[in-house]
Design a protein around this nucleic acid. Structure first.
Length: 837
RNA sequence: GCCGGAGUGGCGGAAUUGGUAGACGCAAGGGACUUAAAAUCCCUCGGGGCAUAGCUCCGUGCCGGUUCGAGUCCGGCCUCCGGCACCA
């Protein structure tokens, strides 16, 4: 009987659905919440999804067999730019585009045979979902966590939208790479900085369950630093400028001062508007430093020196106080600036036990010992930092200060396809929040999408004008929508009670949350994961949840990569555009480029539909789990998938070939006797290995390798008597159970072929017997002076002395030991002996 | 520059955390079956040397160290990949 993946897979997918096998309800069992990052409905799934969801499905099915009540949901991150761009470019309404994509992708996911509870499906563009975005926003507004301010924002002229700092990559838009410019706008912000310290501290709790590098990235992003704020008087003015420094030990080395062009004092200190504008235009540009001398001086409060005040493009208003003291001897940026303006460089820190040769060729940024610093000279930096802060505090001119790089989260987007911000502007009452009872504020359908950069909601009169909830007069709605990261910051909570009738049901949330295992790409290591941690804390403070961290364990899967092909004339090529190492269009030799993340633009993608049509879901899943450990990058291999397919086919044929013999001995007791004794043992060993590989760090690749080994042994075992069949059946039955989370359809089918009742997924995970798994004979490696000189078979469980005797009696060993004194022997139980001569 | 991670056969990757380096898969070579091919099955497969049923030396990016024993631990380098980057 030939293996037909499609037939088998559709059959069992239908069965599971009919049996409602994966629908989940709260019960008395221990819960396990297994979650994969939900996709953006871009149109079709890609190999990254296949890998992500295959990993999640193995975990969910495995945990289910281990007796957990598993929650394994799926949904759609359905708001976002591409839908709107499709509308602009092709005239399709974003809603239509999105829902059609969801339909198609849902079919694809179902075709993969994933064990989701589809009744919990969540779609973020539905009013039942986004009304809670609005509700949280109102709560945050009440709590002072949502606020409006005018600020310069990152603006992508191509996407015509505001970008969060995190969405700016190397000065370009994260989506389209266009250069990002600064623009002044009234924006809504969420005060994530109020939780900066807590989010940082919380990282410690994640150490056990999260990858180290993700925690490092989060800490880095929060960017806590200790230092001091110091007030500098301005000569000829009553005002002072406050600076922040992490190096109070270099205070005596300040030779000038810089303020940000956006600093409120900038306009007061210079009359030259034009020059100020020029500096502003280079603000934040990393390439070069620009400065403008104001003609004014500040007074260094520790030594009363006059310091010229500059306006400098590299001083950021968003960090610290927007003003710095400049110590060119000990800060490379100040050093470069000093060179530019020929400003003095004064050394106040010398390396311990040495001295700097002046003039300096670069700043000395290390810590050291203070010099030229009045009473603090001679003190080491670390000590001086504290002492100087004490001194500043006593004198009332400064204080210790902790700063964070983390900024508040700007959520306003001048876009249509997102959650309307539930705010009304009334001429008399000002900013008025939409009353809770009026939620949701529905996103209107009749909107003109032009891509001009104006909020499209401005074009819907019906939406725009409303009456003020306070005074009843005609008022305008906020027309910006929320950043879509708001949607994904709490969707995992929504899955617990997905229907609006019981939305945010505390009891159900308490049962399921937090997520026990979260699986997704590293690209969300800061953005999504940090926002989710923030939201969870806000929800905790509102009283909806009673924990801090949403995701107990996190698995960040590696990228799916493939070799790239390119031609000097035609650029990236598809594999079918290459013949005999030459481009079929022009005949130029083809460059086999680096193995890179699959992307349409580089033409190195594999379409999951093609894969599943050709090999089936089981093979596709098995290969993506076997080719590399989950957290590492996976290199696509056409041959590799053939290997996985071959394995499944071999298993299929073997089971069918022996199905009669296997069925006949069903329910008969297995005994480890006869020629099958070693297969019996191998089976127990395999259960142990596979279980341990899954339990510790999800090493699916080695788990599959172990199953292949077991299969190879079953396959070379030629059963004749019933006792042989009993053992073969025992081995196969367990192999199918172990394989079932990885290749669920074929496992379920073959389960019935050996005479078992479906569903295999109602079976418990197999257990091994430690005794039965033990080898009776083991290979002893005999080393002499650390080199392997012999390998001998010995019975397991010998004492050290017996092992030593066996080894010394071996003639190959005697060749070396003859006439020499044995200094020492080291015996590793059941494994190795090292004889030191 | 700073912070993470990784370097093992022709390739993807194993190695119970200090105890046989190369599991499993792929590729390659040889053989069987076949009119033939595909598929399938069996054997070989890190490199060198030799008196070639065997023996022996070398081998986990490089140099050193600890140890009876190092892919694994320590010190110093090199290379590659990710993240952050004028954060004062």
């Amino acid at each position: 009987m030939k293996y037909n993946p499609e037939e088998v897979e559709l059959k069992w997918q239908r069965y599971w659905e009919e049996q409602k096998l994966f629908l989940t309800k709260e019960d008395e069992r221990e819960k396990f919440y297994c979650l994969e990052m939900f996709p953006y409905p871009s149109g079709r799934i890609h190999m990254g999804h296949v890998r992500n969801y295959a990993i999640g499905d193995v975990i969910a099915r495995y945990k289910r067999m281990r007796g957990y009540n598993v929650l394994h949901p799926m949904g759609w991150d359905a708001f976002g730019l591409p839908a709107e761009n499709a509308a602009i470019n092709h005239g399709v309404h974003p809603a239509k585009w999105t829902y059609e994509n969801i339909d198609y992708m849902k079919k694809q996911l179902k075709r993969m045979g994933l064990s989701y509870d589809w009744t919990r499906e969540v779609t973020t563009c539905e009013p039942e979902y986004y009304r809670w975005n609005q509700w949280f926003f109102l709560k945050m507004y009440e709590m002072g966590l949502a606020y409006r301010k005018s600020s310069t924002v990152n603006w992508c002229p191509s996407c015509s939208t505001v970008l969060a700092n995190e969405q700016v990559v190397d000065g370009g838009c994260w989506r389209c790479d266009s250069e990002v410019i600064q623009k002044e706008l009234e924006q809504w912000f969420l005060r994530i900085t109020a939780y900066a310290e807590e989010l940082l501290q919380g990282c410690e709790k994640l150490i056990e369950g999260w990858p180290e590098h993700v925690i490092a990235m989060q800490k880095n992003w929060i960017g806590k630093s200790h230092g001091a704020e110091v007030d500098f008087a301005i000569e000829g003015s009553d005002e002072t400028i406050r600076i922040f420094t992490t190096r109070p030990d270099t205070l005596w080395g300040a030779t000038f001062m810089c303020i940000s062009p956006l600093h409120p004092m900038a306009e007061k200190l210079t009359a030259d508007r034009e020059a100020l504008e020029r500096i502003k235009s280079t603000y934040g540009k990393a390439e070069e430093k620009h400065g403008l001398f104001t003609g004014r001086y500040a007074i260094n409060p520790v030594n009363n020196e006059r310091l010229p005040i500059y306006i400098a493009n590299f001083v950021l208003m968003e960090y610290g106080t927007g003003a710095i003291m400049s110590v060119p001897a000990h800060d490379q940026r100040d050093f470069e600036f000093a060179r530019l303006f020929d400003l003095p460089v004064r050394v106040v820190i010398e390396p311990e036990g040495g001295s700097l040769s002046e003039p300096l060729s670069e700043a000395y940024e290390e810590e050291g010992v203070l010099v030229n610093s009045a009473q603090f000279s001679g003190m080491p930096s670390s000590e001086a930092k504290k002492a100087i802060i004490d001194f500043l505090e006593q004198k009332g001119i400064g204080k210790a200060k902790v700063n964070y790089r983390l900024r508040d989260w700007g959520i306003s987007r001048q876009r249509y396809w997102g959650t309307p911000i539930p705010i009304i502007y009334c001429d008399d009452c000002g900013v008025v929040p939409v009353p809770e009872d009026d939620l949701p504020v529905i996103l209107p359908k009749d909107v003109e999408l032009t891509g001009t950069g104006m909020s499209p909601l401005l074009t819907s009169e019906e939406f725009l004008y409303t009456s003020c909830p306070r005074c009843g007069k005609r008022a305008r709605r906020e027309t910006d929508t929320m950043d879509t990261f708001v949607d994904s910051s709490w969707y995992f909570i929504r899955y617990c009670s997905p229907k609006d009738a019981d939305a945010l049901d505390r009891k159900r949330i308490k049962y399921w949350m937090p997520v026990d295992q979260y699986i997704g790409g590293v690209e969300h290591a800061v953005l999504h994961l940090l926002y989710s941690r923030f939201f969870t804390r806000v929800l905790r403070d509102i009283g909806i949840v009673d924990f801090d961290e949403p995701f107990t364990n996190l698995l960040t899967q590696g990228m799916v990569c493939k070799e790239t092909l390119s031609c000097p004339e035609h650029g990236w090529l598809l594999p079918e555009e290459v013949k005999d190492e030459r481009c079929i269009k022009c005949g130029s030799p083809v460059t086999r480029g680096r193995v890179e993340k699959m992307s349409k633009s580089k033409k190195n993608v594999i379409d999951p539909d093609y894969l599943i049509n050709r090999y089936g879901a089981d093979t596709s899943r098995l290969f993506s789990l076997f080719a590399a450990p989950p957290e590492k990058d996976l290199e696509w291999s056409d041959r590799g998938i053939e290997g996985a397919y071959r394995f499944i086919n071999r298993l299929w044929s073997l089971v069918h070939e022996h199905s009669e013999g296997l069925k006949k001995v069903k329910d008969q007791r297995v005994e480890p006797v006869g020629k099958g004794a070693s297969l019996f043992r191998k089976t127990h060993q395999c259960i142990k290995k596979v279980t341990q590989d899954i339990e510790r760090r999800f090493q699916f690749n080695t788990a599959i390798a172990a199953m292949m080994e077991l299969f190879n042994e079953i396959s070379s075992f030629k059963p004749s008597a019933d006792e042989d069949y009993r053992i073969m059946r025992f081995a196969l039955r367990n192999l199918l159970l172990m394989l079932s989370p990885f290749a669920p359809h074929v496992a379920e089918e073959l389960w019935t072929v050996i005479g078992e009742e479906p569903s295999i997924f109602n079976q418990p995970w197999p257990v091994w017997d430690e005794e039965a798994a033990k080898e009776q004979e083991v290979e002893l490696v005999v080393q002499i002076n650390g080199k392997v000189r012999a390998k001998i078979m010995i019975p397991a469980g010998l004492s050290d002395d017996e092992i030593k005797q066996k080894a010394l009696n071996d003639e190959r060993v005697q060749k070396y030991t003859a006439g020499r004194e044995i200094k020492k022997t080291i015996v590793i139980k059941g494994r190795l002996i090292n004889i030191v001569l």
